[in-house]
């Protein structure tokens, strides 16, 4: 999945998600515009991420990877949450997105839309990339090999 080295004879293009934690938020100042970037601690795509039998994505935040490449453009980030599994403290469960609630009109019960709550290994490409304050073009996305998922543990 990962790009092991430039000597790899069989490179494969794939969209992969990077999981991590934001360490610093910078606004790089180019005088006429500012570019927000996140400096992150990434989990190693090789040994820090796996998908269990039920399809949950699990991450081990102690397995750090991509140390030389900590920055992403802030607009590339999506938010997920890391939930501790009491049966296995080492691997945190990745929960994607906010849970939306509706009140059912008939009996006022709360209907929970769980569609997006649990992550698949590949998250959808950021289709709501409508905020473009950073003067990057959409083609950044098409060429992109990865999608960065920046997250906050809780």
């Amino acid at each position: 999945m990962d790009f092991a080295s430039s000597k790899d004879n069989y490179p494969v293009m794939a969209i992969i998600s990077y999981f991590g934690v934001i360490e610093e938020i910078w606004e790089v100042d180019y005088v006429k515009f500012k570019v927000p970037v996140f400096k992150c601690k990434w989990v190693s795509c090789n040994i820090g991420v796996h998908v269990d039998n039920l399809g949950f994505t699990l991450v081990d935040l102690t397995k750090i990877g991509s140390k030389k490449d900590p920055f992403i453009m802030a607009f590339q980030a999506k938010q997920v949450f890391y939930v501790k599994d009491p049966f296995n403290e080492r691997w945190l469960v990745v929960i994607q997105g906010r849970t939306e609630y509706d009140v059912d009109n008939h009996d006022n019960s709360i209907v929970q839309h769980a569609d997006n709550s649990f992550s698949r290994h590949l998250l959808p490409i950021n289709d709501e990339n409508d905020i473009d304050e950073v003067h990057a073009t959409q083609s950044d996305y098409n060429e992109g090999i990865w999608e960065n998922i920046v997250t906050l543990p809780e």
Partner: peptide, 17 residues
């Protein structure tokens, strides 16, 4: 460089660890 402890973007509020 300006640094922030939180940032609103992509309809999310991000915070540093």
């Amino acid at each position: 460089v300006i640094t922030w402890s939180g940032y609103d973007i992509n309809k999310f509020s991000f915070y540093i660890n």
